[in-house]
Amino acid sequence: MTPDRRTLLADAALDVLTDEGIRGLTHRAVDRRAALPPGTTSAYFRTRAALLTALVTRLVQLDQAELQATAERLPPLRTVDDVVDGIVQLTRQRLTGEGRRRSLARYACAVESVRDPELRKILVPHENAGRRAVRSFLAAHAVPDVDNRTHTLLTCIDGLVFDRLVSGGDVPREAVEGLVAAALRQGRSPSPPSG
């Protein structure tokens, strides 16, 4: 099925952002990337803010679809090794191919969202099958404050992915094992930052 014009433009904008950075994201650049006549992007997204909103919305749609597909392929998360294997697989997806491109775009948009509450609302962590699986695993192991532990674990994984995007290489399995062990530790969990 051919994507509608708005989706085509949002995908092109995502490519421009990934290849040229936030400063390179212009209506003209998106027109060129989408191989459409000049002015097409601005006809659909009048302002740069509207273009960024469409791009971020599309990025979240693609990420959610990837997370759902990954969760469906994985066996139920019953053991620590199951969780570690699943997270390692996800980090590899986020560091290679299209996943890497989306990760680069996601972090550029996250920085941009500091000044744009609408983008920030779209980018907040969404409920998805992967998050539910981690939360269920932690709940099954009777950890206190499951929601905060889930949030903290996944935020730390996100930080490892960011580090490897910048410095190169894979996320070490030992780092994931350490984070999962910390999430399972009994006692009070650290509160996630507010805001």
Results as ranks from 00 to 15, higher is better:
Met1Ala: 11
Thr2Ile: 09
Asp4Cys: 12
Arg5Gly: 08
Arg5Ala: 14
Arg6Thr: 13
Arg6Cys: 11
Arg6Val: 07
Thr7Ile: 10
Thr7Ala: 09
Thr7Trp: 01
Leu8Gly: 07
Ala12Trp: 02
Ala12Thr: 03
Leu14Cys: 03
Leu14Glu: 02
Leu17Val: 12
Thr18Leu: 05
Glu20Leu: 04
Glu20Cys: 03
Glu20Val: 03
Gly21Cys: 05
Ile22Glu: 05
Arg23Gly: 12
Leu25Lys: 00
Leu25Met: 03
Thr26Val: 06
Thr26Phe: 03
His27Asn: 13
Arg28Glu: 15
Ala29Trp: 01
Ala34Pro: 05
Ala35Cys: 08
Ala35Val: 15
Pro38Asp: 11
Tyr44Ser: 14
Phe45Leu: 14
Leu51Lys: 07
Leu51Asn: 05
Thr53Val: 09
Ala54Trp: 11
Ala54Ile: 13
Val56Cys: 15
Val56Trp: 06
Thr57Asp: 15
Leu59Asn: 09
Gln61Thr: 13
Gln61Arg: 10
Glu66Gly: 13
Leu67Asp: 15
Ala69Arg: 15
Thr70Tyr: 13
Arg73Leu: 15
Leu74Glu: 15
Pro76Ser: 11
Leu77Ile: 14
Leu77Arg: 06
Arg78Val: 11
Arg78Lys: 04
Val80Ala: 10
Val83Lys: 00
Ile87Arg: 00
Val88Cys: 09
Gln89Tyr: 09
Thr91Asn: 14
Arg92Ile: 04
Arg92Asn: 07
Gln93Gly: 08
Glu98Val: 11
Glu98Ser: 12
Gly99His: 06
Arg100Gln: 13
Arg100Pro: 07
Ser103Asn: 03
Ser103Asp: 05
Arg106Phe: 14
Arg106Ala: 15
Arg106Lys: 08
Ala108Lys: 02
Ala108Cys: 04
Cys109Ala: 14
Cys109Trp: 00
Ala110Gly: 01
Ala110Thr: 01
Glu112Lys: 00
Ser113His: 02
Ser113Asn: 02
Arg115Glu: 09
Asp116Ala: 12
Pro117Tyr: 10
Lys121Trp: 07
Val124Ala: 12
Glu127Asp: 15
Glu127Pro: 13
Asn128Arg: 05
Ala129Met: 07
Ala129Ile: 07
Gly130Asn: 14
Arg132Leu: 14
Ala133Arg: 15
Val134Ile: 15
Val134Met: 13
Phe137Asn: 04
Leu138Phe: 04
Pro144Tyr: 06
Pro144Val: 09
Asp147Ala: 09
Asn148Thr: 07
Arg149Pro: 03
Thr152Asp: 08
Leu153Tyr: 11
Leu153Ala: 09
Leu153Val: 11
Cys156Leu: 13
Ile157Met: 14
Asp158Leu: 08
Leu160Pro: 10
Val161Trp: 01
Phe162Arg: 05
Asp163Pro: 01
Arg164Trp: 00
Arg164Asp: 02
Leu165Trp: 03
Leu165Asp: 05
Leu165Glu: 06
Gly169Tyr: 00
Val171Gly: 05
Pro172Gln: 09
Pro172Trp: 06
Glu174Asn: 05
Glu174Cys: 07
Ala175Asn: 10
Ala175His: 10
Val176Glu: 05
Gly178Lys: 12
Leu179Met: 12
Val180Phe: 05
Val180Leu: 02
Leu184Arg: 00
Gln186Tyr: 01
Gln186Arg: 00
Gly187Ile: 01
Ser189Lys: 00
Ser191Lys: 01
Pro192Gln: 00
Pro192Met: 01
Gly195Trp: 00
